[in-house]
Design a protein around this nucleic acid. Structure first.
Length: 423
DNA sequence: CCTCCACCGGAACGTGAGGAGT
DNA sequence: ACTCCTCACGTTCCGGTGGAGG
Protein backbone atom coordinates (compact mmCIF):
# COMPACT_ATOMS: atom_id res chain seq x y z
CA UNK A 1 0.00 0.00 0.00
CA UNK A 2 1.72 3.14 1.20
CA UNK A 3 5.17 2.85 2.70
CA UNK A 4 6.90 0.16 0.76
CA UNK A 5 10.56 0.98 0.62
CA UNK A 6 13.14 -0.55 -1.58
CA UNK A 7 14.75 -3.59 -0.04
CA UNK A 8 18.04 -2.40 1.29
CA UNK A 9 20.72 -5.01 1.12
CA UNK A 10 21.89 -5.64 4.65
CA UNK A 11 25.58 -4.93 4.75
CA UNK A 12 27.90 -7.40 6.39
CA UNK A 13 30.70 -5.11 7.39
CA UNK A 14 30.65 -2.50 10.04
CA UNK A 15 31.37 0.98 8.78
CA UNK A 16 33.84 3.22 10.49
CA UNK A 17 31.24 5.81 11.24
CA UNK A 18 28.72 3.39 12.49
CA UNK A 19 26.01 4.43 10.09
CA UNK A 20 25.09 0.80 9.70
CA UNK A 21 25.24 -0.11 13.32
CA UNK A 22 21.80 1.13 14.04
CA UNK A 23 20.39 -0.70 11.08
CA UNK A 24 22.16 -3.89 12.03
CA UNK A 25 20.60 -3.83 15.41
CA UNK A 26 17.28 -4.13 13.74
CA UNK A 27 17.98 -7.54 12.33
CA UNK A 28 16.37 -9.18 15.27
CA UNK A 29 13.88 -11.23 13.34
CA UNK A 30 16.03 -13.30 11.06
CA UNK A 31 18.51 -15.81 12.20
CA UNK A 32 19.58 -17.02 8.80
CA UNK A 33 17.85 -15.53 5.85
CA UNK A 34 19.74 -17.63 3.33
CA UNK A 35 17.58 -20.56 4.22
CA UNK A 36 14.70 -18.87 2.44
CA UNK A 37 16.56 -18.24 -0.78
CA UNK A 38 15.60 -20.40 -3.73
CA UNK A 39 19.06 -21.89 -4.23
CA UNK A 40 19.39 -23.15 -0.70
CA UNK A 41 19.34 -26.93 -0.45
CA UNK A 42 17.94 -28.09 2.85
CA UNK A 43 18.98 -31.46 4.20
CA UNK A 44 15.43 -32.48 4.75
CA UNK A 45 12.83 -32.28 2.03
CA UNK A 46 9.32 -32.78 3.29
CA UNK A 47 6.82 -34.56 1.04
CA UNK A 48 9.38 -35.61 -1.47
CA UNK A 49 10.28 -38.99 0.02
CA UNK A 50 8.83 -40.85 -2.90
CA UNK A 51 10.80 -38.89 -5.46
CA UNK A 52 13.98 -39.12 -3.44
CA UNK A 53 13.46 -42.83 -3.10
CA UNK A 54 12.91 -43.49 -6.78
CA UNK A 55 15.75 -41.23 -7.81
CA UNK A 56 18.06 -42.98 -5.38
CA UNK A 57 17.04 -46.41 -6.56
CA UNK A 58 17.74 -45.47 -10.16
CA UNK A 59 21.13 -44.02 -9.29
CA UNK A 60 22.29 -46.70 -6.90
CA UNK A 61 24.14 -48.72 -9.57
CA UNK A 62 26.65 -45.87 -9.62
CA UNK A 63 27.89 -46.91 -6.20
CA UNK A 64 28.61 -50.35 -7.56
CA UNK A 65 30.43 -48.77 -10.45
CA UNK A 66 27.71 -49.51 -13.00
CA UNK A 67 25.95 -47.02 -15.24
CA UNK A 68 22.63 -45.76 -13.98
CA UNK A 69 19.81 -45.22 -16.46
CA UNK A 70 19.25 -41.78 -17.86
CA UNK A 71 16.46 -39.90 -16.19
CA UNK A 72 14.00 -37.23 -17.13
CA UNK A 73 12.41 -35.24 -14.36
CA UNK A 74 9.29 -33.18 -14.85
CA UNK A 75 7.53 -30.72 -12.62
CA UNK A 76 6.42 -27.14 -12.50
CA UNK A 77 8.52 -24.40 -10.95
CA UNK A 78 8.91 -24.60 -7.22
CA UNK A 79 8.09 -28.26 -6.86
CA UNK A 80 11.46 -29.16 -5.46
CA UNK A 81 13.04 -30.80 -8.50
CA UNK A 82 16.36 -29.06 -8.27
CA UNK A 83 16.55 -29.41 -4.51
CA UNK A 84 15.85 -33.13 -4.64
CA UNK A 85 18.32 -33.81 -7.41
CA UNK A 86 21.07 -31.81 -5.76
CA UNK A 87 20.36 -33.47 -2.47
CA UNK A 88 20.46 -36.99 -3.84
CA UNK A 89 23.49 -36.11 -5.93
CA UNK A 90 25.37 -35.00 -2.87
CA UNK A 91 24.46 -38.13 -0.97
CA UNK A 92 25.54 -40.23 -3.89
CA UNK A 93 28.93 -38.59 -4.13
CA UNK A 94 29.53 -39.04 -0.43
CA UNK A 95 28.37 -42.62 -0.36
CA UNK A 96 30.34 -43.70 -3.38
CA UNK A 97 33.44 -42.04 -2.01
CA UNK A 98 33.17 -44.12 1.11
CA UNK A 99 32.86 -47.21 -1.08
CA UNK A 100 35.97 -46.23 -2.97
CA UNK A 101 34.17 -45.58 -6.24
CA UNK A 102 34.87 -42.45 -8.24
CA UNK A 103 31.50 -40.92 -8.89
CA UNK A 104 31.03 -37.32 -9.91
CA UNK A 105 27.86 -35.35 -10.13
CA UNK A 106 27.98 -32.35 -12.41
CA UNK A 107 25.23 -29.79 -12.21
CA UNK A 108 24.57 -27.47 -15.12
CA UNK A 109 21.79 -24.95 -15.40
CA UNK A 110 20.88 -24.73 -19.06
CA UNK A 111 19.21 -21.41 -18.64
CA UNK A 112 22.58 -19.84 -17.97
CA UNK A 113 24.68 -22.23 -19.99
CA UNK A 114 22.40 -21.99 -22.94
CA UNK A 115 24.24 -23.11 -26.01
CA UNK A 116 25.58 -26.47 -26.99
CA UNK A 117 29.09 -25.17 -27.07
CA UNK A 118 28.94 -23.62 -23.64
CA UNK A 119 27.42 -26.73 -22.18
CA UNK A 120 30.31 -28.85 -23.40
CA UNK A 121 32.87 -26.28 -22.36
CA UNK A 122 31.37 -26.12 -18.89
CA UNK A 123 31.33 -29.88 -18.55
CA UNK A 124 34.93 -30.10 -19.68
CA UNK A 125 35.91 -27.50 -17.15
CA UNK A 126 34.17 -29.41 -14.39
CA UNK A 127 36.29 -32.46 -15.00
CA UNK A 128 39.44 -30.40 -15.16
CA UNK A 129 39.95 -29.65 -18.81
CA UNK A 130 40.13 -25.99 -19.69
CA UNK A 131 38.54 -25.16 -23.01
CA UNK A 132 38.39 -21.64 -24.41
CA UNK A 133 34.92 -20.20 -24.00
CA UNK A 134 34.80 -19.60 -27.70
CA UNK A 135 36.72 -20.41 -30.81
CA UNK A 136 36.82 -24.16 -31.16
CA UNK A 137 34.49 -26.12 -33.36
CA UNK A 138 31.80 -27.70 -31.22
CA UNK A 139 32.70 -31.27 -32.10
CA UNK A 140 36.28 -30.71 -31.09
CA UNK A 141 35.16 -29.64 -27.65
CA UNK A 142 33.09 -32.76 -27.50
CA UNK A 143 36.05 -34.94 -28.42
CA UNK A 144 38.18 -33.21 -25.85
CA UNK A 145 35.57 -33.75 -23.21
CA UNK A 146 35.29 -37.41 -24.12
CA UNK A 147 39.01 -37.96 -23.96
CA UNK A 148 39.30 -36.29 -20.60
CA UNK A 149 36.49 -38.18 -18.92
CA UNK A 150 37.81 -41.42 -20.20
CA UNK A 151 41.19 -40.98 -18.55
CA UNK A 152 39.86 -42.45 -15.34
CA UNK A 153 37.53 -45.19 -14.41
CA UNK A 154 34.59 -43.32 -13.02
CA UNK A 155 30.89 -42.68 -13.17
CA UNK A 156 29.85 -39.21 -14.16
CA UNK A 157 26.32 -38.05 -13.68
CA UNK A 158 25.38 -34.94 -15.58
CA UNK A 159 22.43 -32.98 -14.31
CA UNK A 160 20.96 -30.60 -16.83
CA UNK A 161 18.53 -28.25 -15.20
CA UNK A 162 16.00 -26.42 -17.39
CA UNK A 163 16.94 -28.73 -20.20
CA UNK A 164 14.05 -27.46 -22.31
CA UNK A 165 15.88 -24.17 -22.72
CA UNK A 166 18.74 -26.01 -24.35
CA UNK A 167 16.65 -28.24 -26.56
CA UNK A 168 15.21 -25.19 -28.25
CA UNK A 169 18.61 -24.59 -29.75
CA UNK A 170 19.12 -28.09 -31.02
CA UNK A 171 19.44 -31.51 -29.50
CA UNK A 172 22.69 -32.65 -31.06
CA UNK A 173 24.60 -32.42 -27.82
CA UNK A 174 22.03 -34.54 -26.11
CA UNK A 175 22.19 -37.04 -28.93
CA UNK A 176 25.95 -37.22 -28.68
CA UNK A 177 26.01 -37.35 -24.92
CA UNK A 178 23.39 -40.04 -24.78
CA UNK A 179 25.45 -42.32 -27.00
CA UNK A 180 28.82 -41.44 -25.59
CA UNK A 181 29.12 -44.56 -23.47
CA UNK A 182 29.67 -46.65 -26.58
CA UNK A 183 32.93 -44.81 -27.19
CA UNK A 184 34.24 -44.86 -23.65
CA UNK A 185 36.69 -47.40 -22.29
CA UNK A 186 36.76 -46.50 -18.62
CA UNK A 187 34.25 -43.87 -17.70
CA UNK A 188 30.48 -44.18 -17.69
CA UNK A 189 28.15 -41.29 -18.12
CA UNK A 190 24.53 -40.95 -17.28
CA UNK A 191 22.27 -38.00 -17.78
CA UNK A 192 19.57 -36.39 -15.72
CA UNK A 193 17.39 -33.85 -17.45
CA UNK A 194 15.15 -31.53 -15.51
CA UNK A 195 12.31 -29.77 -17.26
CA UNK A 196 9.31 -27.81 -16.16
CA UNK A 197 7.66 -28.28 -19.50
CA UNK A 198 5.85 -31.58 -19.68
CA UNK A 199 5.66 -31.60 -23.43
CA UNK A 200 9.17 -30.63 -24.29
CA UNK A 201 10.10 -34.10 -25.48
CA UNK A 202 7.80 -33.56 -28.45
CA UNK A 203 10.50 -31.44 -30.01
CA UNK A 204 13.14 -34.06 -29.36
CA UNK A 205 14.65 -36.42 -31.85
CA UNK A 206 12.90 -39.73 -31.09
CA UNK A 207 16.24 -41.46 -30.52
CA UNK A 208 17.29 -38.89 -27.96
CA UNK A 209 13.88 -39.04 -26.43
CA UNK A 210 13.98 -42.75 -25.81
CA UNK A 211 17.50 -42.86 -24.49
CA UNK A 212 17.16 -39.81 -22.30
CA UNK A 213 13.84 -40.88 -20.90
CA UNK A 214 14.74 -44.38 -19.83
CA UNK A 215 13.32 -43.44 -16.48
CA UNK A 216 10.94 -40.65 -15.70
CA UNK A 217 10.05 -39.01 -12.43
CA UNK A 218 7.23 -36.57 -12.01
CA UNK A 219 7.04 -33.92 -9.34
CA UNK A 220 3.45 -32.94 -8.65
CA UNK A 221 2.73 -29.46 -7.28
CA UNK A 222 2.50 -29.15 -3.52
CA UNK A 223 -0.87 -28.57 -1.94
CA UNK A 224 -1.45 -25.96 0.73
CA UNK A 225 -0.76 -28.33 3.61
CA UNK A 226 2.50 -29.52 2.17
CA UNK A 227 3.66 -25.98 1.55
CA UNK A 228 2.71 -25.26 5.10
CA UNK A 229 5.02 -28.02 6.32
CA UNK A 230 7.86 -26.82 4.17
CA UNK A 231 7.51 -23.29 5.41
CA UNK A 232 7.30 -24.45 8.97
CA UNK A 233 10.52 -26.36 8.63
CA UNK A 234 12.43 -23.55 6.92
CA UNK A 235 11.01 -20.88 9.14
CA UNK A 236 12.41 -22.72 12.11
CA UNK A 237 15.87 -22.26 10.64
CA UNK A 238 15.45 -18.83 9.16
CA UNK A 239 13.82 -16.94 11.99
CA UNK A 240 14.64 -16.60 15.61
CA UNK A 241 12.16 -18.42 17.73
CA UNK A 242 8.73 -16.96 18.35
CA UNK A 243 9.13 -14.33 15.71
CA UNK A 244 6.25 -15.49 13.61
CA UNK A 245 2.67 -14.75 14.29
CA UNK A 246 0.50 -17.86 14.33
CA UNK A 247 -1.25 -17.10 11.06
CA UNK A 248 1.73 -16.01 9.02
CA UNK A 249 2.79 -19.38 7.70
CA UNK A 250 -0.74 -20.42 7.07
CA UNK A 251 -1.35 -17.33 5.01
CA UNK A 252 1.85 -17.68 3.01
CA UNK A 253 0.96 -21.27 2.22
CA UNK A 254 -2.51 -20.29 1.15
CA UNK A 255 -1.28 -17.59 -1.20
CA UNK A 256 1.28 -19.89 -2.75
CA UNK A 257 -1.14 -22.75 -3.16
CA UNK A 258 -3.28 -20.52 -5.30
CA UNK A 259 -0.26 -20.05 -7.50
CA UNK A 260 -0.20 -23.71 -8.53
CA UNK A 261 1.70 -24.91 -5.49
CA UNK A 262 4.95 -23.09 -6.04
CA UNK A 263 7.07 -23.52 -2.93
CA UNK A 264 9.63 -21.04 -4.17
CA UNK A 265 6.94 -18.43 -4.25
CA UNK A 266 5.91 -19.28 -0.72
CA UNK A 267 9.45 -18.97 0.58
CA UNK A 268 9.88 -15.68 -1.22
CA UNK A 269 6.73 -14.42 0.33
CA UNK A 270 7.84 -15.45 3.77
CA UNK A 271 11.21 -13.82 3.32
CA UNK A 272 9.80 -10.56 2.01
CA UNK A 273 7.26 -10.53 4.82
CA UNK A 274 10.08 -10.83 7.29
CA UNK A 275 12.02 -8.05 5.63
CA UNK A 276 9.03 -5.79 5.72
CA UNK A 277 8.38 -6.55 9.36
CA UNK A 278 12.01 -5.89 10.12
CA UNK A 279 12.03 -2.57 8.35
CA UNK A 280 8.89 -1.41 10.06
CA UNK A 281 10.62 -2.33 13.30
CA UNK A 282 7.92 -4.70 14.26
CA UNK A 283 9.00 -7.18 16.93
CA UNK A 284 7.28 -10.08 15.17
CA UNK A 285 6.09 -10.90 11.68
CA UNK A 286 2.37 -10.47 11.46
CA UNK A 287 -0.35 -11.21 9.02
CA UNK A 288 -0.43 -7.66 7.71
CA UNK A 289 3.20 -7.92 6.72
CA UNK A 290 2.40 -10.93 4.60
CA UNK A 291 -0.33 -9.02 2.85
CA UNK A 292 1.99 -6.12 2.17
CA UNK A 293 4.61 -8.57 0.93
CA UNK A 294 2.16 -10.29 -1.36
CA UNK A 295 1.23 -6.93 -2.80
CA UNK A 296 4.83 -5.93 -3.22
CA UNK A 297 5.79 -9.12 -5.01
CA UNK A 298 2.82 -8.84 -7.30
CA UNK A 299 3.59 -5.19 -7.90
CA UNK A 300 7.20 -5.95 -8.77
CA UNK A 301 6.03 -8.54 -11.22
CA UNK A 302 3.65 -6.15 -12.95
CA UNK A 303 6.25 -3.42 -13.14
CA UNK A 304 8.66 -5.83 -14.73
CA UNK A 305 6.11 -7.09 -17.23
CA UNK A 306 4.96 -3.62 -18.22
CA UNK A 307 8.48 -2.34 -18.53
CA UNK A 308 9.46 -5.06 -20.95
CA UNK A 309 6.38 -4.81 -23.12
CA UNK A 310 6.89 -3.98 -26.81
CA UNK A 311 6.18 -0.35 -27.63
CA UNK A 312 2.98 -1.05 -29.49
CA UNK A 313 1.55 -2.93 -26.53
CA UNK A 314 2.58 -0.10 -24.26
CA UNK A 315 0.71 2.32 -26.47
CA UNK A 316 -2.46 0.31 -26.29
CA UNK A 317 -2.12 -0.08 -22.58
CA UNK A 318 -1.67 3.65 -22.27
CA UNK A 319 -4.71 4.28 -24.40
CA UNK A 320 -6.81 1.96 -22.26
CA UNK A 321 -5.42 3.61 -19.18
CA UNK A 322 -6.24 7.14 -20.28
CA UNK A 323 -9.71 6.18 -21.39
CA UNK A 324 -10.60 4.39 -18.23
CA UNK A 325 -9.39 7.41 -16.33
CA UNK A 326 -11.86 9.85 -17.85
CA UNK A 327 -14.79 7.53 -18.03
CA UNK A 328 -15.35 5.17 -15.15
CA UNK A 329 -13.71 2.05 -16.50
CA UNK A 330 -15.12 -0.11 -19.31
CA UNK A 331 -13.31 0.69 -22.50
CA UNK A 332 -14.22 -0.93 -25.79
CA UNK A 333 -11.77 -2.10 -28.40
CA UNK A 334 -12.95 0.50 -30.91
CA UNK A 335 -12.40 3.39 -28.55
CA UNK A 336 -9.04 2.17 -27.43
CA UNK A 337 -8.04 1.71 -31.04
CA UNK A 338 -9.06 5.23 -32.00
CA UNK A 339 -7.02 6.76 -29.21
CA UNK A 340 -4.18 4.45 -30.01
CA UNK A 341 -4.18 5.63 -33.62
CA UNK A 342 -4.07 9.24 -32.54
CA UNK A 343 -1.21 8.65 -30.19
CA UNK A 344 0.72 6.73 -32.81
CA UNK A 345 0.22 9.63 -35.16
CA UNK A 346 1.39 12.11 -32.54
CA UNK A 347 4.64 10.36 -31.85
CA UNK A 348 5.17 9.29 -35.45
CA UNK A 349 4.95 5.59 -34.81
CA UNK A 350 3.54 2.93 -37.12
CA UNK A 351 -0.13 2.17 -36.77
CA UNK A 352 -1.04 -1.47 -36.55
CA UNK A 353 -4.32 -2.84 -37.83
CA UNK A 354 -7.21 -3.41 -35.54
CA UNK A 355 -6.86 -7.12 -36.09
CA UNK A 356 -3.40 -7.07 -34.65
CA UNK A 357 -4.53 -4.91 -31.79
CA UNK A 358 -7.13 -7.44 -30.72
CA UNK A 359 -4.34 -9.96 -30.43
CA UNK A 360 -2.20 -7.59 -28.41
CA UNK A 361 -5.12 -6.88 -26.15
CA UNK A 362 -5.62 -10.58 -25.61
CA UNK A 363 -1.96 -10.86 -24.73
CA UNK A 364 -2.22 -8.11 -22.16
CA UNK A 365 -5.21 -9.95 -20.80
CA UNK A 366 -3.21 -13.15 -20.47
CA UNK A 367 -0.48 -11.29 -18.64
CA UNK A 368 -3.05 -10.13 -16.14
CA UNK A 369 -2.48 -6.46 -16.77
CA UNK A 370 -5.91 -5.82 -18.16
CA UNK A 371 -9.19 -7.62 -18.06
CA UNK A 372 -10.94 -8.15 -21.38
CA UNK A 373 -14.36 -9.69 -21.78
CA UNK A 374 -16.40 -10.10 -24.92
CA UNK A 375 -19.84 -8.63 -24.40
CA UNK A 376 -22.67 -7.97 -26.75
CA UNK A 377 -24.39 -4.63 -26.68
CA UNK A 378 -27.13 -5.78 -28.97
CA UNK A 379 -27.89 -3.21 -31.58
CA UNK A 380 -24.65 -1.46 -30.68
CA UNK A 381 -22.54 -4.36 -31.63
CA UNK A 382 -20.30 -6.82 -30.01
CA UNK A 383 -16.97 -5.91 -28.50
CA UNK A 384 -14.47 -6.53 -25.81
CA UNK A 385 -14.91 -4.61 -22.63
CA UNK A 386 -11.53 -3.79 -21.26
CA UNK A 387 -10.66 -2.69 -17.79
CA UNK A 388 -7.37 -2.17 -16.06
CA UNK A 389 -6.46 -4.74 -13.46
CA UNK A 390 -3.42 -2.92 -12.14
CA UNK A 391 -3.09 0.38 -10.28
CA UNK A 392 -3.46 3.26 -12.71
CA UNK A 393 -0.89 5.80 -11.57
CA UNK A 394 1.89 3.29 -10.97
CA UNK A 395 1.39 1.80 -14.38
CA UNK A 396 1.44 5.16 -16.06
CA UNK A 397 4.68 5.93 -14.30
CA UNK A 398 6.27 2.78 -15.64
CA UNK A 399 4.99 3.44 -19.14
CA UNK A 400 6.43 6.93 -19.10
CA UNK A 401 9.88 5.54 -18.45
CA UNK A 402 9.88 4.61 -22.12
CA UNK A 403 11.37 7.55 -23.96
CA UNK A 404 9.23 6.87 -27.00
CA UNK A 405 6.09 7.41 -24.97
CA UNK A 406 7.46 10.45 -23.20
CA UNK A 407 5.78 12.96 -25.55
CA UNK A 408 2.42 11.53 -24.49
CA UNK A 409 3.00 12.44 -20.87
CA UNK A 410 0.19 14.98 -20.85
CA UNK A 411 -1.87 13.57 -23.67
CA UNK A 412 -5.59 14.03 -23.30
CA UNK A 413 -7.89 11.90 -25.41
CA UNK A 414 -9.95 14.06 -27.76
CA UNK A 415 -13.40 14.41 -26.17
CA UNK A 416 -15.03 14.31 -29.60
CA UNK A 417 -13.98 10.74 -30.05
CA UNK A 418 -15.21 9.60 -26.74
CA UNK A 419 -18.68 11.07 -26.96
CA UNK A 420 -19.85 7.73 -28.27
CA UNK A 421 -22.87 6.05 -26.79
CA UNK A 422 -24.35 5.80 -23.39
CA UNK A 423 -23.04 3.04 -21.12
C1' DC B 1 -38.63 -13.63 -35.03
C1' DC B 2 -35.49 -11.12 -37.76
C1' DT B 3 -31.82 -7.48 -38.36
C1' DC B 4 -27.86 -5.60 -38.12
C1' DC B 5 -24.13 -3.37 -35.25
C1' DA B 6 -19.23 -3.53 -34.13
C1' DC B 7 -16.38 -6.06 -33.36
C1' DC B 8 -14.19 -11.19 -32.71
C1' DG B 9 -11.03 -14.47 -34.29
C1' DG B 10 -9.60 -18.14 -37.88
C1' DA B 11 -6.84 -18.79 -42.24
C1' DA B 12 -3.61 -17.67 -45.45
C1' DC B 13 -0.12 -14.97 -46.78
C1' DG B 14 4.01 -11.36 -46.73
C1' DT B 15 8.26 -9.80 -44.69
C1' DG B 16 12.59 -9.46 -42.52
C1' DA B 17 15.86 -11.21 -39.04
C1' DG B 18 18.71 -14.81 -37.67
C1' DG B 19 20.70 -19.69 -37.87
C1' DA B 20 22.30 -23.82 -40.13
C1' DG B 21 24.28 -25.91 -43.95
C1' DT B 22 27.46 -25.87 -47.84
C1' DA C 1 29.25 -15.73 -49.60
C1' DC C 2 25.48 -18.16 -50.73
C1' DT C 3 20.97 -20.42 -50.28
C1' DC C 4 17.49 -22.44 -47.47
C1' DC C 5 14.68 -22.69 -43.47
C1' DT C 6 12.33 -21.24 -39.51
C1' DC C 7 10.05 -17.86 -36.61
C1' DA C 8 8.01 -13.85 -34.96
C1' DC C 9 5.32 -10.29 -36.24
C1' DG C 10 1.83 -8.09 -39.25
C1' DT C 11 -1.61 -7.70 -42.82
C1' DT C 12 -5.71 -8.94 -45.72
C1' DC C 13 -9.78 -11.13 -46.17
C1' DC C 14 -13.74 -12.73 -44.29
C1' DG C 15 -17.20 -15.63 -42.07
C1' DG C 16 -19.29 -15.52 -37.43
C1' DT C 17 -22.15 -13.79 -33.55
C1' DG C 18 -25.16 -12.19 -28.89
C1' DG C 19 -28.68 -9.63 -28.25
C1' DA C 20 -31.29 -4.63 -28.29
C1' DG C 21 -34.40 -2.86 -31.01
C1' DG C 22 -37.61 -2.95 -34.52
Amino acid sequence: MSEIELPSKPSEKKSAHGIFDDLLKNTVIFQNKEVLRPNYTPDNLPHRDKQIQSLASILVPAIRGDTPSNILIYGKTGTGKTAVVKFVGQELEDKSASHGIACYVLYVNCEIVDTQYRLLATLAKHIGKEVPMTGWPTDQVFEEFKKTVDKEKRVVIIIMDEIDKLVRKGDDVLYNLSRINGDLENARISLIGISNDLKFTEFLDPRVKSSLGEEEIIFPPYDANQIHDILEQRAGLAFKSNMLDETVIRLCAAFAAQEHGDARRALDLLRVSGEIAERSKSPVVEEKHVRVAQEKIENDRVVEVVRTLPTQSKLILLSVLLLSKIRNNNVSTGEAYTIYKQMCHDIGSDILTQRRITDLISELDMLGIINAMVVSKGRYGRTKEISLSVPMSDTKGVLMEDYRLKPLENYQPDPLIIQSRLM
